[in-house]
Every structure is written in C-alpha cells, then in structure tokens.
Amino acid sequence: MGPENLLGFALGEWQSARVSVIQLKQIRKDNKWRLKHAFFADMGGFVLRTGDGVRFFLDTKHIHWLLDHQAISMAQFEEHFLLDPKAIDDRNKSDVFVRVIAVGQALWFCVNIIARDIRRMPITTLEITTIGIIIDSVLVYYFWKDKPADVQRMEVVNIQMTISELLLLEENEAVRTQAYFRTPLNFASRKVWSMSLIYIYGMNMLKGILVVGLFYGDRGIRKMQADVQKRREMLANPDPLEGNACLKDRVVHMFWTLAMKLMNNSLENDPNLDVSLVFLLGVPCFAAYTVIRAYILVEDVIAFPALPPDVYRTVDWWGLLPHIT
C-alpha cells in the first residue's frame, strides 16, 4: 500500500472531526468542543452504558444524535464529553515532542537530499522514493496533530434509559428497526467519508488476497476439485428438461454474486460500505497503482549494486559556514 492511501484515510478522519466541531458549535453557540474531543470520540474514547447494561462506543455522530433527541442533557454533555484537553493528553501515549522530532528528522532528510543535488552529488532512487513518502507522512502528521494515539482508558457515560427506550427516540421506524453492524445507533453515524471508504476498500482487497492465498489456498484447491467432479457428474447424467435453465440460473447467479462482492468487499457485508459503479471503475487504477508501487520498491533495491562509490558521501555543512579569519 502506498502512503497516499493512509493520507486519504487521515484526511477522511480529519474531515469527520471538523464537521462535528462545526455542528456542535451551531448547537451550543461556543467553541468548547474541539478537534481533540472529536478525534477522541471517533477513535472510541466514549462508551455509553444504558439502564439495562448495554454498552457500546459513541462517535461524534452518535453524540450529536443523543443531543438532538435529548437523550443526554447539556449538563451531562459538559460533564462527560467536554473533557479538559489536558485530560485527553494524559491518556495520549504519543507525546507531541516525539512527533515534532519525527517530523524534524524527516524534513532534515529532505534538506540533505536537496543539498546533495545542488552539490552534484549522486542520489539513489530509494532516497527519491523516500522523499515522496515523507511528504505524505508530514501531511498525515498535520491532519492527525489533534488525534490522541493508543488511548486505552475510556470515558463511560451512564444514562437511565434502556436500549429499547433509546431507540424509540428515532422517529423513522424503518431506520431504527434495521439490522446494525457496529452499534445500536448505527443508523445515526454510518456515513463513511469518501477518502476513508477508498482506504477501507483497498485494505479489504489486500486482506482478501492474503487470506485466500495464505490460509485458504489448500481448502480452495479442494473445493475447486470437488466442483470439477460435480460438473463431470452433471455432464455424464444431463437433465434434458432442466439443463439449460439450470445453466442460465447459475450464470446469472455467478455474475450477480460477483457484482455484489465487488460493490461491498467488507467481511460482514456492511451496507454502509457499499461503493458505486463509478467507484468500481477506479479499482483497476488502484490495482495498477499498487503494482507500480511494488515495482518502484523492487527497482530501488535492485539498483544498489550499480551505485557509485561516492553515493555514501554527505554534505559538509561545516564547510558551508563562513569562516572568520
């Protein structure tokens, strides 16, 4: 996977958090709900516990729905959700100073490469590839600068309503009674941002290839052999009345199943992760991009034996400083 996919995912999370900040600002008429709170919510920092003991995670859209339907009061919101930013920082396992050092080292690497090019010193293709990765990484750091990392302690919010009473607050009966895939408030929050959807779809593609290849290869071969044997038996004893109809139904079913799987490649077939036909047109482009990325990395490694000896030379920064005589 290329770093651009992670950048797209980070952009989608930042976009979701930013929309949450704007919406709650319109409701509360203040700026107390910040990006740091929104990121903390979307990464599973808040857990709702109903009166009958049902627990599930809350994201920003859940919180907005609870406020909009008065399932929680403003007093409860301020007590449980408007955490002190320092309290969120205390749960953050990644220090800001560490992030700054990481970005500084990456940028210093870019400065060295530019300086070597100015001094007409040789540069490897691997270093050029690394610069592209660094640019994407710096942008990811920017979009995630307010996002805590590896938070393990969550904020539990208790309400008196049971889960049945909570769901009855939704006016649309068809929406509240539909099956959910993640939380009972799935209907309130399952809009997936386009950049995040691209990242999830691509990762599911790679996971499917790896799982099938590594864990189900032998099983798949046995199933294929069984299907071949079954077809041989059908050809040996054909049914003249149903043969054509069965063949037509199997072909239609095969293409329909393939189309449905391409439009939703999630393991649980979450309908909120459906993609459009226009999106599917970009799948070959994504596959080509992945192959090109792999080729570039392989080419970078293959080029090592042909590198000139002075490729390991570095810029003499002290020699560039003016000398006082």
Rank of each mutant, 00 (worst) to 15 (best):
I123T: 08
H69L: 10
I72S: 13
R153W: 09
R153T: 03
I113F: 10
F56M: 04
L66E: 14
S73H: 07
D84F: 00
R153E: 13
E171Q: 15
I134M: 02
P85S: 06
S94H: 06
L66F: 06
D150V: 00
R119P: 05
G132P: 04
D68C: 14
K145W: 03
D84N: 12
Q70W: 01
V111F: 11
K145E: 06
F81D: 01
I114C: 11
L168P: 03
W65N: 13
V98E: 02
M121D: 00
I131M: 11
L82D: 01
A106R: 06
H80R: 08
P85W: 05
V157S: 14
F109R: 12
L107R: 06
E165W: 11
R91M: 08
I134N: 07
S73K: 09
D89H: 09
I114H: 07
Q160L: 07
I128T: 03
A71S: 11
W65S: 09
F81P: 03
F57E: 07
V151L: 06
V100M: 09
L82Y: 00
R120A: 09
P122S: 06
L167A: 13
I163K: 14
F143K: 11
M121Y: 05
E170T: 05
N172L: 12
K86L: 10
A75G: 12
I63S: 12
V96F: 04
R120C: 09
I163M: 15
A106K: 11
I123S: 02
K61H: 05
T125C: 04
V111G: 11
N172I: 06
H69C: 15
L139F: 01
V96H: 02
T125V: 08
D117W: 05
N158C: 11
S73Q: 10
F81Y: 01
E155M: 13
E79Q: 13
F143D: 08
L83M: 10
V151F: 07
M154S: 12
L83P: 01
A71Y: 03
I163V: 13
K147L: 04
L168I: 06
A149H: 12
P122V: 01
H62I: 09
A174L: 12
E127V: 03
H80I: 00
E155V: 13
S164V: 05
G104T: 06
L126R: 11
T125N: 08
L107M: 09
I134V: 03
R116K: 14
I101L: 05
Q76L: 05
N112E: 15
T130N: 07
Q76E: 08
F81M: 03
Q160N: 14
Y142R: 15
E79I: 00
L168M: 08
V140W: 00
Q160H: 10
K86A: 10
Q160F: 02
S137I: 00
E127S: 12
D136V: 00
L126S: 10
L169R: 15
K93W: 01
T124C: 09
N112P: 05
F109N: 08
H80M: 00
F77N: 03
A149V: 11
A75S: 12
R91D: 01
P148N: 08
A115R: 04
V140K: 15
R153Q: 13
Q160K: 14
S137M: 02
I101P: 05
R116M: 02
R99F: 00
T130H: 05
M161V: 02
Q160A: 14
N92S: 07
W144S: 15
I135S: 05
Y142V: 02
E170N: 14
E127T: 04
D117Y: 07
V98D: 01
H69P: 10
I72R: 14
A87V: 04
D90N: 11
